[in-house]
């Protein structure tokens, strides 16, 4: 088992949420600028440069770090926006930049050698060869692992690489290998990888009729809910469709990852940091989830088996349902 203390990395979509995460016990907070350079480019979300600088000051004053996500992919003719975002993150005093695009990685490695580089999950690096490339070429110090590996695969990977790994432990799940998903773009012309938005809200609509609520994305019906039934945000991967005679979630059930019961296992597998998903979520979610994981991580670090946090966090999961995802691959 790794002897170093695992780091708890928590989401922040706004300055208020950053403060909430820090006060709830985050070792590090990840956030992005208010533009398409980060993978959560939604209206009203994210940080101006001034807010980022103030957020870094607040986090540092409370012993926490700030990791800035510049993790979408630049486009021909507009890569400068991504470079400027990296420069701004350094100027704000951030502790690390999380990136996936090799143009951004190269810019940071060449011009800002003092700041740590973390490889975003958007890079989908899940083999020793891929991770080795990023580490040797750009000096990447940590890799955020795609949510497609079993805990045994994580352990094997960690034995074969020389950089830290960060593993998701709670929040929304993507069924695709991250950084390769263009489902949203088929319906809307925009994707999380290029524009920072999966199901852009300007193309989302909810309509009420006598049969309940219809959730649409760019005119396509993604799901239909009975009157009074809980609704969800219409993403194509979690839509309910009819194929043959059967209506079902064709790609992925709307469940959330909760690996709270696997913290000791992830530590034993050599994971350095545990990541909570949810930069779109509010202070209430962040406070509750971070507090629960803070207790659980501290318990594991003190040698106990951890606390039972599944029940505490059930209300914060999408659809109220949870899974340990690929960490326990029961289908194999």
């Amino acid at each position: 088992m790794s002897s170093t203390r695992m780091e708890l990395v928590c989401p922040a979509g706004t300055p208020a949420t950053l403060r909430a995460a820090v006060q709830a016990g985050a070792d590090a907070v990840y956030c992005g600028f208010r533009d398409e350079t980060n993978a959560r480019n939604f209206p009203g979300l994210n940080f101006s440069t001034e807010e980022m600088a103030e957020g870094v000051r607040f986090a540092h004053a409370h012993g926490s770090k700030v990791l800035v996500a510049i993790n979408t992919f630049g486009r021909v003719g507009s890569v400068d926006r991504w470079r400027k975002a990296a420069d701004a993150a350094v100027g704000c005093g951030a502790d690390a930049i999380i990136a996936a695009d090799i143009a951004v990685l190269d810019h940071v490695a060449s011009n800002h050698k003092q700041i740590r580089l973390h490889l975003s999950v958007q890079a989908a690096a899940a083999t020793p060869e891929a991770i080795g490339f990023y580490a040797e070429t750009f000096g990447v110090r940590r890799v955020v692992l795609p949510r497609v590996l079993s805990i045994q695969e994580v352990a094997t990977l960690n034995r074969e690489i020389r950089v830290e790994t960060e593993a998701f432990v709670f929040g929304g799940l993507c069924v695709m290998t991250e950084g390769r998903c263009y489902l949203s773009s088929y319906a809307t012309g925009k994707s999380p990888n290029l524009n920072g938005v999966c199901s852009p809200p300007e193309m989302v609509s909810y309509e009420e009729d006598i049969d309940g609520t219809v959730a649409r994305l760019c005119g396509f019906t993604i799901d239909r809910y009975a009157p009074g039934a809980p609704v969800g945000y219409p993403t194509l991967c979690k839509g309910r469709f009819k194929a043959g005679d059967k209506t079902s979630y064709l790609f992925e059930d709307p469940v959330s990852l909760n690996a709270g019961s696997m913290i000791a296992g992830l530590k034993a597998a050599g994971v350095t940091a545990l990541k909570i998903e949810g930069r779109q979520r509010g202070k209430g979610y962040v406070t509750e989830v971070v507090r629960a994981f803070r207790k659980a991580v501290d318990a594991v670090e003190q040698g106990s088996d951890g606390i039972e946090i599944d029940r505490i966090l059930a209300g914060q999961s999408e659809g109220g349902r949870q899974t340990t995802g690929a960490y326990k691959k029961s289908w194999r």
Partner: peptide
């Protein structure tokens, strides 16, 4: 319940949240 521009609702929700 919310209807109309989801984008405007999200912007308002995030602004109030912060």
């Amino acid at each position: 319940s919310v209807s109309g521009s989801t984008e405007a609702v999200l912007a308002l929700r995030n602004t109030i949240e912060d």
